[in-house]
């Protein structure tokens, strides 16, 4: 489904160069649930940023269903982010001026699929356990509810792959399992998921666990 080869990402801050991602090869199969663990600054976000079409690799290629996402035009790539790749972050990123339901519906604007989108949004909010909170503002949600809403939002356009960049990082430990169970559920329904986290206790939820260390990725055989 998604194949990355020889990914390198360099940042230059003044005269020093940071090698955030240092030669990563990754083959994500349809229906996978991959976990990438790694300490702070190991390069997880940078890797997901490149896979998600948010920042271009310094070297290497990323193919999504055979298509090189970084040779597309910006507008085509934006459309790809709207329809094929969904990103979830450590923060909800809900627009404060829209209700929870509207936030979930919102990405459909970019995909251009508006028909019955509200029914679908209701169903997704039910899936993530936010039934009854549709008309609230994002400010009324707890941090873990915010993440739940952002998961629902990530699903609205039926993406082929979900990239989650440490969605549990800022949550209370007792809230983590609830969130991970949602990922397990949508994985069971056939979604492809790559989830990065500093937390190593999440391994039981994933099919494949990889470890990121100073920009290098290594597969762990459990």
């Amino acid at each position: 489904m998604m194949v990355a080869t020889g990914l390198v990402k360099r940042f230059t801050i003044g005269s020093t160069e940071v090698l955030a991602v240092d030669g990563v090869d990754l083959d994500i199969k349809k229906g996978d649930f991959d976990l990438i663990t790694g300490v702070e600054g190991s390069g997880k976000s940078t890797l997901l940023g490149m896979l998600g079409g948010l920042t271009p690799p310094s070297e290497g290629n990323i193919l999504l269903q055979g298509q090189n996402i970084w040779t597309l035009s910006g507008t085509r790539r934006a459309h790809l982010r709207a329809t094929e790749i969904s990103l979830i972050f450590s923060f909800s990123g809900l627009l404060p001026t829209l209700t929870v339901l509207e936030n979930v519906m919102f990405p459909s604007v970019f995909a251009g699929t508006m028909v019955h989108i509200d029914k679908k949004a209701h169903r997704l909010l039910q899936l993530v356990g936010l039934s009854g909170k549709e008309d609230l503002g994002p400010d009324c949600l707890s941090p873990d509810e915010g993440i739940r809403a952002s998961i629902a939002r990530a699903l609205i356009n039926d993406p082929s792959i979900i990239l989650a960049d440490d969605p549990v990082r800022d949550l209370d430990p007792e809230k983590v399992t609830g969130i991970m169970e949602i990922f397990a559920t949508i994985h069971r329904e056939g979604k492809t998921i790559v989830l990065a986290s500093r937390t190593t206790e999440l391994e039981s939820f994933a099919q494949r666990v990889m470890r990121m260390e100073r920009g290098k990725l290594s597969e762990q055989i459990a």
Partner: peptide
């Protein structure tokens, strides 16, 4: 800025 980044991640193009 972060909202704008999120909008882009959700599929907003530069012109948008």
């Amino acid at each position: 800025r972060r909202d704008i980044g999120v909008l882009r991640a959700l599929g907003a193009s530069r012109p948008f």
